[in-house]
Design a protein around this nucleic acid. Structure first.
Lengths: 139, 139
DNA sequence: TTTGCTGTTATAGCTAACTATAACACTACT
DNA sequence: AGTAGTGTTATAGTTAGCTATAACAGCAAA
């Protein structure tokens, strides 16, 4: 697990996303306790309040339950709830945006979706189709 | 062009991204003036300073040039500069994250490729392959 | 009962992002 | 000269995100 943060999104949301990922990946199973607020805060060198804020979001989404004095626990049904919701969110919001970017950059989605994980990033997946984007200097 | 903003990123960055998209799409060509700070501010009902901040970013990236009293203009070479830089950024930062999400959600290439832009977002695309993500209750 | 772990609340302060309003400085057209 | 269009700077206030520090409250095991 990374110990670093992305400046493109608030920490508490990234934290929420990490827990979600862990649930989807089966690292955290239903009934399991979340790593404690204080532990996470210390380990990632972040303020406890920030962690709490991320966790509270999970509570609000019905994924996690608080037991006073004991900790926070993953609810039953959390995973399937997530699979539904996150898929919808991804397909409805993120993917269209990403797909547009892929086309804009003249990359090809199929290639990216195949091997994908490691791609040198230099001139990777060059654009055969430079469609509709003719520079066409005209001054 | 949308008139709305995304709460997941600051407006000035979204603004910068939109101009970048317009350059890549050929809507704005090299030598063309950007829509004026005041116009954009009015049209999108945003503070001029916010627009300026987005535009300044483009200047800092060497994509755009300021001509006092006249406006801001797209530099020659802007587009190819962008194709390089944005591809690298996308493949190196955004795509790995997105790809991980896709796998996590058990989505399949076909589903992403056919509808792509338009996806109703209802219960779209169930995952036949629930690979490696066995819930396996054990409490 | 004490110790040690949970989540939670209270104060207080900093910075980034955004806002409103106004003025300044340069260029071009009339 | 005047007007209207550029970008830019100045002041000042709000909100969200994050921080440090400290205390409160519930639970469980020694």
């Amino acid at each position: 697990m990374d110990r670093e943060w992305n400046d493109s999104q608030p920490i508490y949301r990234q934290l929420r996303d990490r827990v979600v990922a862990m649930i989807l990946d089966g690292v955290l199973k239903e009934g399991d306790p979340l790593p404690s607020v204080r532990n996470v805060a210390t380990e990632y060198r972040v303020n406890p309040l920030t962690v709490l804020k991320g966790y509270q979001q999970l509570v609000d989404e019905g994924l996690v339950e608080t037991r006073r004095g004991r900790g926070m626990f993953i609810n039953v049904g959390a995973r399937s709830l997530l699979l539904q919701g996150e898929r919808q969110k991804f397909l409805g919001e993120e993917w269209p945006r990403v797909y547009a970017t892929i086309q804009r950059l003249g990359l090809r989605a199929e290639e990216l979706l195949d091997g994908a994980t490691s791609r040198s990033s230099s001139d990777a997946a060059q654009a055969k189709t430079d469609k509709s984007n003719a520079p066409e200097e005209e001054n």
